[in-house]
Design a protein around this nucleic acid. Structure first.
Lengths: 279, 279
DNA sequence: TTGACAAATGACTTATTAGTCATTATTATA
DNA sequence: TATAATAATGACTAATAAGTCATTTGTCAA
């Protein structure tokens, strides 16, 4: 497990610098100080490494954003928080964000395209629920169009700091985008993308994840981490999944405990979604 | 010459389908019904072909748009004409547009990056002059920011028909974007990109700038500004450059102090790069 | 018809890189 | 300590692709 993480970290650096195609396995293993053969003990192929990277970081980024949005009670701050946590995540994982944006349109690998599409959909889902919460009925006709505006603006501005190294006044950027979003949401009368278009564009998202799958994931993560608090929290949450005994407050508290551990972010996201649906 | 055009046409098709990297010369020549050697009679290398393609199509697209914009006398129609001719050109040369957008962020080849930047700048120039003509003084503070909004929106929506081959109601799309642009132009009060930022982005530095040059710049700026905090921060940063004594946290803080001063933006940018604080 | 010149060919060289596997080193166990 | 199990190695194979060049083919003026 440790070896796998080492490879992922080092590979990410090189990929961001040179691009995925231009980085041979040999260079990654040299940089890690291991042999080429050792790489293939951790990953079946170069593609598997790429997929693992995308999964790892997109899960972390999406769950960070989702958590922030769900835990901002004040609607006034909601948009700002959304933009802020998005750009924060992009900045924190800028090496990855670069790769993600770079390869977004350029991949030959089918599995990769599906992955990227999938996470793109999740992002759209977050944006949509945010718009609905903020503007409600008023944007019924324009909300799908708004999603594309927001995505376009984010893309344009994130390119600035990702590829031009410009130092970033993130507060100002977010303020500026909040204003723009509000403007577009309040005054747009001619949407381009309608509900029907949006449905059409929608690739069927992967079917709901089962409790069994979440439990399997927890068991996997338990092997990877050492921190006692997180470990015990996970064990309790697992039991709670099998047979719900804990009060909602305790369950929520346990989720808080594991929320910030890098290996637990995705599980936290799934569990939050799971309990949201249940009630 | 005829041969050269044949190769360019056929190569464009294959590039758009598979990506540039994934298309071998052999495949292009097979598709053309000529030999591999014949290719090298027309182009010195694969790179030369790629550059030739970009030049050819970007010249055509840019001049089409520029012509339409310059020949629209009625300001009411100007924005609509701009969007319409842009999307028309993208659609007409969709194979090329795909490649251009794909490779925009992903290129290894230095010459190619320079080319793409150059044409991107031309596009920004067209958009800027259009904004100035339409809104004049009213957008003095927000016009550079507006450019990035327009580019972001165009990108987001052109992706729809380029990569999802959604059927396109171009009239509706342009109407919709005209409304959005007018909204943003009329009501934006918090621009993110200022005149200074825009100037800065114009000259992306390639060659290393020496400490001495930065110090010279600081001395120059010191003469220009009066604010005590910014002044002292600059003096301290200058000493720190000559002989590093400050802790990273203090240096970072001083940079924060000067970051938003219009005359210090470029220096801040250089220093951030120098210390590699912000990536 | 011929010979000179240009155009075109494709087998070949060189280089790169993903992935394999027989061998060696290390660690755990009895 | 001896032995089995596991991890790690890197030389090797196979595949791909850019670019070259000796040879062939085509053209046309004399």
């Amino acid at each position: 497990m440790i070896k796998k993480q080492l490879i992922m970290e080092k590979a990410l650096e090189l990929f961001a610098q040179q691009g995925i195609e231009a980085t041979p396995i040999q260079q990654i293993t040299d940089y890690c100080g291991i042999s080429k053969g050792a790489f293939y003990l951790s990953f079946k192929s170069k593609d598997e490494l790429i997929i693992a990277l995308i999964d790892h970081f997109m899960k972390e980024i999406i769950s960070d954003i989702d958590y922030m949005v769900n835990n901002t009670k004040n609607d006034e701050e909601l948009l700002y928080t959304f933009y802020y946590s998005t750009f924060h995540a992009f900045h924190k994982h800028s090496d990855f964000a670069k790769i993600f944006i770079k390869e977004q349109t350029q991949s030959f690998n089918e599995e990769l395209i599906v992955k990227i599409h999938y996470y793109d959909r999740l992002m759209e889902g977050i944006i949509l629920s945010l718009i609905e919460r903020l503007y409600g009925e008023k944007v019924e006709r324009t909300k799908y169009d708004l999603i594309y505006c927001i995505k376009g603006l984010m893309n344009s501005y994130s390119g600035l700091f990702l590829f031009n190294n410009a130092p970033l006044n993130r507060e100002l950027l977010c303020q500026s985008l909040v204003e723009k979003t509000n403007l577009l949401a309040s005054h747009t009368t001619v949407p381009f993308i309608t509900h029907e278009d949006f449905q059409m564009l929608k690739h069927p998202i992967k079917e709901e994840i089962t409790i069994e799958q979440i439990i399997q994931m927890i068991e996997q993560v338990l092997k990877e981490i050492d921190e006692p608090i997180e470990k015990e929290s996970l064990i309790l949450l697992k039991q709670h999944l099998l047979e719900p005994t804990l009060s909602p407050a305790i369950a929520k508290g346990l989720l808080e405990n594991i929320r910030n551990h890098p290996h637990c972010k995705w599980i936290t996201y799934l569990l939050f979604r799971y309990y949201e649906i249940e009630k």
